[in-house]
Design a protein around this nucleic acid. Sequence first.
DNA 1: TAGATTGTTAATCGATTAACAATC
DNA 2: TAGATTGTTAATCGATTAACAATC
Lengths: 220, 220
Amino acid sequence: MGNVKVQKLPTIRRLPTYLYKLSEMRKAGVSIVATPELARYMNLGEIVIRKDLAVTGVTGQPGVGYKVKELIEAIKSYLNWDNSSEAVLVGAGSLGSALLGYEGFEEYGLRIIAAFDASPDKIGTEVHGRTVFDVERLSELARRLQVRMGIICVPAAHAQEVADRMVAGGIRAIWNFANVSLSVPDDVIVQREVIAGGLAVLSVKMNRKLAGEEDAGQLG
Amino acid sequence: MGNVKVQKLPTIRRLPTYLYKLSEMRKAGVSIVATPELARYMNLGEIVIRKDLAVTGVTGQPGVGYKVKELIEAIKSYLNWDNSSEAVLVGAGSLGSALLGYEGFEEYGLRIIAAFDASPDKIGTEVHGRTVFDVERLSELARRLQVRMGIICVPAAHAQEVADRMVAGGIRAIWNFANVSLSVPDDVIVQREVIAGGLAVLSVKMNRKLAGEEDAGQLG
DNA sequence: TAGATTGTTAATCGATTAACAATC
DNA sequence: TAGATTGTTAATCGATTAACAATC
């Protein structure tokens, strides 16, 4: 179904959080960071931090710590976020607009260069500085713009159709915020985002809490 | 740090996806579902599905399948989504507005009953039918409304302050979309949502794909 | 040298997968 | 009965945690 087996998924999911923290530190002029500080920030054990950082290939200095700048570069390189990739977004509703307005993506090597929608009310307007095109033109423009990544923010009922257009337009990676599983060719990757998943985890934690147990991280 | 150790996290994260699919099926008049169909929908192996459904305590009928209605109720009950809980949301920016506008939450037992913001431009306005109050009134109103859950959609720099107000207002569960780790008392639960985590996974999948490996799910 | 921290190796734990008997 | 599917038990695999030597 167009996907790739990936290991160390929990670590990978945490990398953007490290990246954010490290960037803040660099801005503040800090050049060295040691595990205990990151552990506190991440709400995780020190060993977890060291194992996480290890995947990037960076090696720290015993008794001292890691170079902030080196870590930032290594994480970006590991995620291939150093050469910023371009994406198109389909569905300029509330979620789509929120993503278009999120400035943090630049830091994550993502540039959303165009938006698409099916509604005549939206086509031709600008959302956070990006023109909204007719979704009919998605394949054509994706191909012309040489975009490799597509973000789907349309209602579930239209997601497959949008995915088809993306594939036809040469898109090879889809970030899917719609609540459906997509059928795509084997050489196309789909990452589905289910925000409600986090809510489910929170709900279970609440229930458990009321029942008694203790201790874990905020990420999970 | 105010948290609970939870097992079977991957399963829990998937439950909302099952719930969505099952609700669709019920709407379509389907009353029985078997593993193979769900496996196809979820892009997962059949055994995973059966193990997942097992946590809800529902028992299927060999050779036949599970009762859709029974599954829906069991999942909702497992997540405690049957008695819908109320929440307040802070930060009526683009992400906050998107969440306020998301109708799917009702299905997930969540009702956002009020919104808060610090900006005079927003205070007093309505966003998707909810009045935006001054964040100064957060503690007071949360207490009066007897709300147990808070959703944070403010910039990282203000998140801790908002969390403090929530705690002061009697909120015991925080869904945190800001890019910081929050300090809260031990009896408060925080679930941090890092959308960029999904982007990281997608990036790594892309890189691996270019390198060659194969096969996995869309959820991950 | 003493203190701190890294990074490796081993042990534990949980999640995923496989095999298969039980059931409709 | 035959075919399909469930659910249990065991095997494999990977992730988390612990212990500790190596290094600055």
